[in-house]
């Protein structure tokens, strides 16, 4: 995949409350089928997307946690989470339902500079 572009999606919004995270995930899945070098960085409230045991029954919204759980099947394996955002929200790595790489803001910033495309979701 020498010609593959490095495309990073920045998940910044909570999973519910707005549609940004959900439609963002739809975009990630399509782009993943184009054999590009896809990664996702979860920062701010975006990290709530990864928290396990979400139940959307009472807000009558179809949850998309299952889809997030199968990202690996789409070869989206680079999931980065901002440590500072976790700290601020009292979230620990054990609270996530998918394996992620926890990085400092500086490390995520460095990864961003290496991308060809950044899509804030």
């Amino acid at each position: 995949m020498e010609d593959a572009k490095k495309i990073m999606h920045i998940v910044r919004k909570a999973p519910h409350g707005t549609i940004y995270a959900y439609e963002g995930l739809e975009m990630v899945l399509i782009m993943a089928s184009y054999d590009q070098d896809i990664s996702m960085a979860f920062i701010g409230d975006g990290i709530y997307n990864l928290v396990k045991d979400q139940d959307t029954t009472d807000i009558q919204i179809k949850g998309f946690m299952k889809t997030l759980g199968v990202l690996e099947d789409y070869d989206v394996e680079k999931l980065y989470v901002d440590a500072e955002s976790m700290e601020e929200r009292g979230i620990r790595e054990g609270d996530f339902f998918v394996p992620v790489e926890v990085l400092t803001s500086t490390e995520i910033g460095k990864l961003m500079t290496e991308q060809d495309v950044i899509v804030p979701q």
């Binding site: 940004y20 975009m27 495309v117």
Partner: peptide, 21 residues
């Protein structure tokens, strides 16, 4: 059009600039 088109655009351009909240 579809999101595949956006992917093609992202691959083709020098800069994809996002405007949003």
């Amino acid at each position: 059009t579809g999101l595949g088109q956006l992917t093609d655009i992202a691959i083709d351009v020098d800069r994809l600039v996002t405007f949003g909240d």
